[in-house]
Nucleic acid binder design. Structure first.
Lengths: 325, 325
DNA sequence: TATCATATGTCAACCCTTTGACATGTCATT
DNA sequence: AATGACATGTCAAAGGGTTGACATATGATA
């Protein structure tokens, strides 16, 4: 790989001149500028960003830690983060924690060693203290880990309320709620509170079922649904904490001949694009995924630039009624 | 951020000693090693990977360029690539080209400037020459761009044959095939050849419909399906080039009351996990996504280490029969 | 006692680029 | 003739870490 020295030599100018051309500073004649650019082309020169980063103490890399990109919600989030990072001249380092604390810790250290500009944390298996030692800008998705550390989440409680109210309004008599592991300290857990409070308020019988993990485990989802339908045949409304789980609920119902939505109403959460192209299309609580991604990148940038920022970024949710209610 | 100098000073040893501890070379007493590690802990020191990369001329970063991670096939691929990269001590830089040549070119240059160890190319909007100027190891997914550049693809032709034969065996009389943009020079295009040849061989009437782009555009998919069902009511079998398109086909049929699979048989491609949790579950041609990811990382590593490698990595496909045929 | 493995230190070069300080020279304007 | 904008050059330091050459010192072994 050619260096700036090679370019300078080939072009018959000094290294300083090439650097000046490259960084657009000082006086440079058109002729020289042209000659330098031509030489760079000829040598297929690309400035070594690593050397630049070392000097600038900035890598222009954002670390994105999530449970797994293969989960539709996180894949859409990653897509948005990448989009806005690119708009801001940043790159995205993709880190799947698989919700394994060791891997998550490992990735955090790796990101520190690589002096990333900031970390977007969408995986939360560690204790709060472990994140706090990080000096670099952080933004968390769906968890609050400190007074000053900005977090982004959808209005989970309201999402829970909206979903539950819809089920009740549609005439459901007994509700089931399938959520993630409530022991993880996530803001998503307030969906469950919203569910419980609303069902209680309306005097509707209800139950909550936890899944072991947040990572996408198809077999587990299928099993849980089957058990639910088996053991609680009187349940006629399900509020699932993700569209994928809702899809499995639909599948489980179809399998045993329970008609959706007539005999069973199902509502998901997230509004990933699959929710719309599934048959039947899934009623869901929409999180503004694009906005979450945009905001995450912006909050990193603001911290980096020392601009003021909101700590609590709770975004509105919207009920999207489709075919499963 | 603490530097190696700070650690040395604090620990009362020389920089060289710290470096020796860090890199496990030369003689170091247990006492010194311990003291150094303690000091690193106390100072929350993390060696600057940027400085190391500069020296080593290796970043341990793999660039992954794909149309968009939000597409299920690519999100699953990205997940696998990340998994195997991590196993090999590498990081993954996520690049969505959106199938925009300018963005793809931009990302390629960015990756060169960042001296990545290798590039996995899953987006192919540029001319072959533009890739060849890259010196760094490349692996392409689903496109052949040079004699020496390794590519990975599933056995697309056979996939097309298998899918078409199944439809014919099930009794379909007129087939439609929905594929991506055939003008992109992709190996996936041979799925279409497999389709055509097989239908011709059996004397079955058939048609092929191209989508504009490969990127996930829901509205376009829905429109194309609707037009197909509208204008060709006699088509009773659809071979879609992705499971997502197949899902839209199912949706379109349900909408107009065409029963699947009785009145219309549909088969997809990829076997993304959604294919299994959709209702009805989609019959599809399975690509070995995990193996593609594993191999992609391995081929980068082999090129880097100067080990021999296969150029043609065509992997077997498997027909997965589910509920839409 | 000579030798050697062990343990640590000093010093300098190197990876590639940026940047500031300073020098030199040309040409046009006042 | 003096001034100033323009154009380019030289030189050196800095960013953080690695590495090889070489020096020195200790304690154990032959």
């Amino acid at each position: 790989m050619a260096t700036i020295h090679d370019v300078a030599q080939q072009a018959g100018v000094s290294v300083t001149t090439v650097s000046r051309v490259l960084n657009n500073r000082g006086y440079i004649s058109e002729a020289t500028r042209k000659k330098v650019f031509e030489t760079m082309d000829a040598l297929n020169y690309q400035p070594n960003e690593i050397a630049r980063s070392l000097l600038r103490k900035q890598s222009n890399i954002i670390g994105l830690i999530i449970p797994n990109v293969s989960h539709p919600f996180f894949s859409e989030l990653a897509s948005q983060v990448e989009y806005y990072a690119y708009e801001n001249g940043c790159k995205v380092l993709l880190c799947n924690s698989q919700l394994d604390p060791a891997k998550e810790r490992d990735y955090i250290e790796m990101l520190k060693r690589n002096r990333v500009d900031g970390i977007i944390m969408g995986s939360h298996t560690l204790e709060v203290e472990e994140y706090v030692s990080l000096r670099s800008p952080i933004v968390t998705i769906d968890r609050r880990i400190g007074e000053k550390i900005p977090f982004i989440s959808s209005d989970n409680y309201r999402g829970g309320v909206l979903a539950t109210e819809l089920l009740i309004r549609k005439g459901c008599r007994k509700l089931a709620h399938i959520c993630g592991n409530l022991e993880l300290d996530l803001l998503a857990n307030s969906r469950s509170e919203g569910f419980r409070d609303t069902a209680d308020k309306h005097g509707i019988e209800h139950m909550t079922i936890q899944t072991d993990m947040n990572v996408f485990d198809q077999e587990q989802y299928a099993r849980i649904i089957q058990e639910l339908l088996d053991q609680h045949p009187d349940v006629d409304g399900i509020f699932a904490t993700s569209d994928i789980i809702a899809a499995f609920a639909v599948k489980g119902c179809v399998k045993i001949g329970r008609r959706v939505p007539d005999e069973m109403r199902i509502i998901g959460y997230d509004d990933v694009s699959a929710a719309a192209w599934l048959t039947p299309a899934i009623t869901t609580v929409q999180q503004p995924i694009a906005e979450i991604g945009r905001l995450a990148v912006e909050l990193i940038r603001r911290q980096l630039d020392g601009e003021p920022y909101e700590v609590d970024n709770t975004l509105p949710v919207e009920l999207i009624e489709r075919a499963t209610t």
